[in-house]
Write a protein that binds this DNA or RNA. Structure first.
Lengths: 223, 223
DNA sequence: TTTTATATAATAGTATTGCTATCATAAATA
DNA sequence: TATTTATGATAGCAATACTATTATATAAAA
């Protein structure tokens, strides 16, 4: 038996758990491909169903609508990233080294994690960059928040915030700086690739330049 | 005759210039109200037409689709803000004072500017916080960019970047820091109001705390 | 084994959205 | 006065965002 990493998901996000059937796993797999390829606006359950070889009604049995599916994917990603961060910084004791490691993970292009067979993390990372903020930039953000849809994101912010405080317990804005790092990592990546004049990254489009920028920003901020 | 501030707009954004007719001005005025109230996703030209007292086809004569209208509003805002910044920092010589002033303008709740009768800037500011990034977070960002849709935004980033360099000409990331300030000002405002645990702002929800955070971030970064 | 619950496929149908086209009329301009 | 131009009114159409129904296959429970 293969050891598969399981990310525990909020059941309010789905009607039927997509991890528990082939069709469900295909919905996840193909929706990631389709959203990454054509963007969230042009993504429909009908197109997804055609790609999978099922019907629109079949997809609706798993997810109420495409927004819930997006929130599911985004939550899954943050849950997976939390796991990666815990795993990769587990044996690091120096908080500064740890925080640098976290920044690197947040701003690096992700490689496909083969222990999660139905999720291509490198595609999902691209979705997070372009579509991630649409998960919360809605008129119903507060209802969604009450249903805990953003818990994995908040947990990650807390992890980063705690690490900031471990570096400097007197720093006044650990949560704001944490959410800033996470968002700016994606924003600068998007700008670097699509609106480069909004950044100082060279034409090589190397994520390492974003990591350098973020490290400079963070460690000067917290001293 | 009243002196009205006119923001010069990119003609590719509209089919007919909305500033030149009553109907056009109503499209701007009521779209701002409707998007601010119900969010961009649920906004349709049909609902807008009903509010104005015209027909859907009437709105389509001015704007190709709702995305172009959003980009129009966002561009208008950045153009207007550029004007405000130039005007309000005109007589300031010290670049540090000037940069502080800019940060304050970027992160402050805007009051309605009475010299622009068909635009309520305080509502438009709310739209920018919740919907602004959707103007560029699309699959067609590069085509839109080629058509100069984001020029006012880039111009503003350049202004801020120049001021950063005026404070410290050796700072390595003036454009990235500029786009970071602009985006984070809105993001932290959104989080403060809807997902407060992602920030360190108190329950008073005072924008001044965001200004303090940004000042701390910027001036520690550039020394 | 038989019964029964469960998942999926196939199909249909409906309201709304996004958009285009046509025609009549009113107002502004030449 | 003739004519261009903007608007209003209406129609229509393809795609989107769903919901409902029935049939069939399959796996679990009796």
């Amino acid at each position: 038996m293969n050891l598969e990493v399981q990310i525990k998901m909020n059941p309010s996000l789905y009607l039927r758990d997509p991890e528990l059937s082939e069709l469900g796993k295909n919905i996840i797999k193909y929706s990631i491909e389709l959203i990454q390829k054509n963007g969230f606006e042009s993504f429909t359950f009908k197109k997804l169903a055609e790609d999978i070889g099922t019907t629109e009604a079949g997809v609706y049995r798993y997810f109420e609508n495409k927004h819930k599916l997006l929130v599911y994917l985004v939550s899954w990603y943050w849950g997976w990233l939390q796991f990666q961060i815990n795993y990769q910084t587990n044996n690091v004791t120096d908080p500064i080294v740890k925080l640098k490691k976290i920044i690197k993970i947040l701003a690096s292009n992700v490689e496909d994690d083969l222990t999660t067979s139905h999720v291509d993390e490198s595609l999902l990372y691209q979705i997070l960059i372009s579509e991630g903020s649409k998960a919360y930039l809605t008129n119903h953000v507060e209802q969604d928040n009450k249903q805990q849809f953003f818990k994995p994101y908040k947990d990650l912010c807390n992890t980063v915030g705690d690490m900031i405080l471990a570096c400097n317990e007197k720093y006044k804005y650990p949560h704001s700086l944490a959410s800033t790092i996470i968002e700016v990592a994606h924003l600068q990546n998007f700008f670097m690739n699509h609106l480069p004049s909004l950044t100082d990254m060279s034409k090589s489009k190397d994520e390492k330049e974003i990591i350098n920028y973020l490290e400079d920003l963070v460690f000067k901020s917290i001293q």
